[in-house]
Structures are given as C-alpha cells and as structure tokens.
Amino acid sequence: METSLNSRRNEEAHSDYCGHNENCEPRFPYGGRGHRDPVAGTPAIAVCGLSARYPSAIRNALTSVSITVNRGERMALLGANGAGKSTLLKAIAGLVVPLEGDIRLLGNPVGACHHRTVYLPQKSSIDWKFPMTVTELVMTGRYVHLGWFVRPRKDDYTLVSAAIERLGITRFSDARIGELSGGQQQRVLLARALVQGAEILLLDEPLNAVDEETRSIVDDVLAAEANRGCAVLLATHDTGSLTESFDRVIGMSDGRVIYNEVPSAIRGATEAEESEFSHVRKLLAFRGQG
C-alpha cells in the first residue's frame, strides 16, 4: 500500500519537474540509453555485496557493501575521509565500475534510468572558472531530458527559474558561477538537481563549509523532496542534525559499512556498542565542545 502510494508520488514528482510530460524521452538520448520505468515494489537504491577498487590502487575502496534506501527515505553516510563514502556514491551514480556485487536503482541496473538519478559531486570537481551563468549551469540539469542536438525550450527555462527561486538565488541568476560563495555554489548545484526531476539524490558532502542559511535551505529542500517520494543518500561529516534530517544513518570505515541504524539508536547506543559507533561519538563530542 505504502509502496504504491510512494510510486504515485514519484510519478507526480516526475511530472511536476519534467516539462515534457507526454514524452519525456529525448529523441537522441545520451549514451544511446532510453528511459526505463521503475520496477514496482522495489527500493530506490539496493546495493548488494558491492566491492570496488580504483585502477591504480592496491586495495579495495569498497568491500562487500550492502545497503537499501527506500523511496521517500533520507539516509546519511558518515565516516572519516577515505572511509569510502564518495566511492559508494560514485558507484551508485555509475562513475565507478564495481569489482563484484550488484546495484539496482528503482529495480533497474545502473544507467538504465539515469534521468532519475542525480549526483552532486564535491564542489572541487567543477570548473567554477568556466564562463557560465547560474541559469546556464542550472539548465544543465535539463540536458538529460533533451539529449543530443536539442536546445532548451521555454518550459525548461520556466523550470530553471522556479528552481532558482526556490533555492533563494534569484538575484544571482545572471551572475557568473565563479562569482558565487561556497554556499551559493551549493544551492546552484541543488537547483540543478531539482530541475532534473530525479527520484534518487546522491549528494557528496553538500553541507561542507556552507553558511547556516544554506544549510537550512538544503535541509528544507531535501525534506520536501523526500516527502515527494525521492530517495536521498547524503555523505556528510555533520552529525549535528542527524535526528531531524535523516531517517537512517550508515557509518563507513575502511570501505565497509560498520553500522546502519536510525539516528536515535546511535545517540542511545550502549557501552557494548561503543567501539562500533566510536566515529560518530567522537564527532558528536567534538561538536558538543564547539
């Protein structure tokens, strides 16, 4: 019952954002990939026994990782630098080829419904010096619906304007992306994710070095997206708002999942579980001192 409700919410969410409801599929899709519908009754993200290694590395970046994120669920990925959070997000986004294991997105293999998946990289992977305006960068979120050779249409611009307004960056819409602050850059990337109308949001540390206003806007937008049936998987170091902002927390260390709990369970962990949750506890303690 809940699944069918979520599925309906997904379709509505997709229709709201996709400006071309009748036929979303581009005539010349990128990579020759057509759009595939979600498989009913399947989770948004299902990762099973995933191991991955970078070409030049001697050891695995991920080892036997298994997680499930349901539609409408917000999941936080916690862990120190090098724990494997970014690699896991990249593998789900199709940027890292797994050594073994299986990844299913809305019941399909990675890449089968790439227009329904959005990946927000760390800001450093984007060339912010490129001569591009905020509107142009947000518009790149529509490209997956346009495909080769097709230029954005009026309804694409309408969607872009709406997303820019929603993220509170209207006054920067004609500004160069290189002129923005870190928080504004993050809002621009989130606006781009919104115009894509994706149902799976993969966010790599979007809350790093951003101001309180941006943090609050990002929180609100992600909550609204989850309510619409989107699955959110977010890598973060920030443990301050775990209970309010996330349904579950996955802890990672050395390329492995070391816990997968509801946030309150992490706060109320027993002494016996101390070692298991040590990373989160250290972070919470550090934050408490600050």
Binding site: Y30, G31, R33, A93, I126, D127, I177, R192
Partner: peptide, 13 residues
C-alpha cells in the same frame, strides 16, 4: 568542460 562527472552520470561521455 564545466562538470564532466554530471555529464557521465547522465550518459554523456
């Protein structure tokens, strides 16, 4: 040029 990772995710090599 500006964001090759996003391009790869949407299937644009």
């Amino acid at each position: 040029a500006v964001d090759p990772l996003h391009a790869e995710v949407i299937g644009l090599s």
